[in-house]
Structure formats: structure tokens, C-alpha cells
């Protein structure tokens, strides 16, 4: 059973997935951040692979990505940093990023390496359903990695069911029409999440985009298994001095500890 599957079997509410950009704020802070996320109550780590042109991301993650790149982060470096991660990190780790750097690394080599270091799944927003089915999906599955598709309120039901059937681990529900880091009117989000809840999907659902504090985290948990926090945490890291202390305060705030 995969780590993600296991997690959701043991915990069906308030699952917290925290995004951080690999190599940010410092080239070598990746593992330290992952450790403090784990120590302070995160259930999943979503590690962003920085890219020069992240289309689905807002300013905060763009800035952290460029910062990480100028720190010298590359996929090669990242895999070196992660090569020993399973000595200390026991919670699921998913890599989030864009197709272009992965294609340059070699898609197959990337999947093999990710599995080797102990990565559990992939979130690749610009790998659409058609391309997944026709070429890349097989390599991902052959390497035993979970693949997590995004769904939006505009995703038609039939397509949504298909994305659910091809996903494993969890399904990533984004409020429609939002790059990361945008605030959204929650009443509309609630209608959408309630609809998802009633669809009896195969995968657990985590809500991303716009979750930033205890209030927004609590709100989505009424309908789903949990949420993903990204920009708000990056903002905290940008302001904070000490990575460990910042992470502790931030997660205590979100989880209400």
C-alpha cells in the first residue's frame, strides 16, 4: 500500500499538505524544512521543483521559484538532497512542477529517480489528461508513483470521473479560475466542494488554492479530507528568520494547536 493510501486510511479528516519550493529560502534548506513540517504536524509534503515560467502559480510561488533557481537548485541537486530523506522523513512526499525541466532531465529517468529517493507521487499541472493517457502516464505508473490530477468547478462531471479514476493518492481540487495565492469567495467554493463530496469519488480530496490559515483550513474540512497550503507558508518563510521556528508557528496557527 502506498504511503498516501495508508495516510488516508488512517486519517480521513484534516489532512494537511504543505507546499514548499525546493531550494528556498536557501539551497540547502529543503530537507530542514521538510523535517520541521513533519515535526509540526504536516501530513504530506508537496515539494515544488522550481521553474522559470510557472504558469499556474501566482507571484509568491513565482518569486520563491526564481529565488531557488538563483540559489542553484536543479533537479539533479534536488535528487541529491533527497537521496537520504527517507532516513528522517516518514510522511508522504509529492513533487509538484512543470513538464519542461522534467523533459530535459528525461521523463523516464525522472520517474525512476523520484521513486528511488522515496517520492510517493507527482503533481504536474501542465501534463493534461490527453498526454497522460497517450504517453506519460504509463511511465509514471510503471515506476509505482501516484499521480494527482487537478480538478476545478468547471471540470465537466464525466471528465472529473475520468481524472479521478486515473489519479491515485488523492485528487487536487482547485477553486476554479485561480493561480496560486489568490483569495476566493468561500460560499461558492463550498457549493463546489459539497458537489464533489456527493460524487463518491474513488480518491480522497484535498483542496488547494486560497487556503491560508485556521479559518480557511477548518472551512474546507467540512466537505473534504483536507487541504493544501502553499503561498501562505512561503510568505511566512519569506518573512521569518528561522526556518524551524517559522514553520512551527505557522503550522500551530493553521492546526489550532
Amino acid at each position: 500500500m502506498s504511503r498516501l493510501e495508508n495516510l488516508f486510511k488512517e486519517q480521513s479528516k484534516r489532512v494537511l499538505n504543505v507546499y514548499c519550493t525546493a531550494g528556498y529560502p536557501h539551497l540547502n534548506s529543503t530537507l530542514q524544512i521538510m523535517e520541521s513540517l513533519q515535526a509540526n504536524g504536516a501530513n504530506i509534503i508537496e515539494l515544488g521543483m522550481p521553474y522559470s515560467d510557472p504558469l499556474a502559480d501566482g507571484e509568491v510561488i513565482q518569486t520563491s521559484s526564481l529565488h531557488a533557481l538563483s540559489n542553484g537548485m536543479t533537479l539533479q541537486v534536488l535528487f541529491e538532497q533527497l537521496s537520504e530523506m527517507r532516513k528522517t522523513i516518514h510522511i508522504p512526499v509529492v513533487l509538484m512542477g512543470y513538464m519542461n525541466p522534467i523533459l530535459q532531465f528525461g521523463f523516464e529517468a525522472f520517474c525512476t529517480r523520484a521513486k528511488e529517493v522515496g517520492v510517493d507521487g507527482l503533481i504536474l499541472p501542465d501534463l493534461p489528461l490527453f498526454e497522460f493517457e497517450n504517453s506519460y502516464g504509463k511511465t509514471i505508473k510503471d515506476n509505482g508513483l501516484d499521480f494527482i490530477f487537478l480538478v476545478t468547478p468547471e471540470t465537466p462531471e464525466q471528465r472529473l470521473r475520468k481524472l479521478d479514476s486515473l489519479s491515485s493518492g488523492f485528487l487536487y481540487a482547485v477553486s476554479s479560475s485561480a493561480t496560486t495565492g489568490k483569495d476566493k469567495d468561500f460560499s461558492q467554493v463550498a457549493v463546489y466542494l459539497e458537489r464533489l463530496q456527493k460524487m463518491n469519488l474513488k480518491n480522497p480530496i484535498l483542496v488547494g488554492f486560497g487556503i491560508k490559515d485556521k479559518q480557511s483550513f477548518d472551512a474546507v474540512n467540512e466537505f473534504t479530507q483536507g487541504a493544501i497550503i502553499g503561498s501562505a507558508y512561503i510568505n511566512a518563510l519569506a518573512k521569518g528568520e528561522d526556518v524551524g521556528e517559522t514553520t512551527k508557528q505557522f503550522l500551530n496557527g493553521v492546526l489550532g494547536n
Binding site: D126, F130, L150
Partner: peptide, 11 residues
Amino acid sequence: GGAYIPEMLFK
């Protein structure tokens, strides 16, 4: 070619 776009632009 192709259409390597996030789901938010799918519709």
C-alpha cells in the same frame, strides 16, 4: 504542438 495547459484553462 499539443496543449500542455493546467486544468483551469481546460474549458
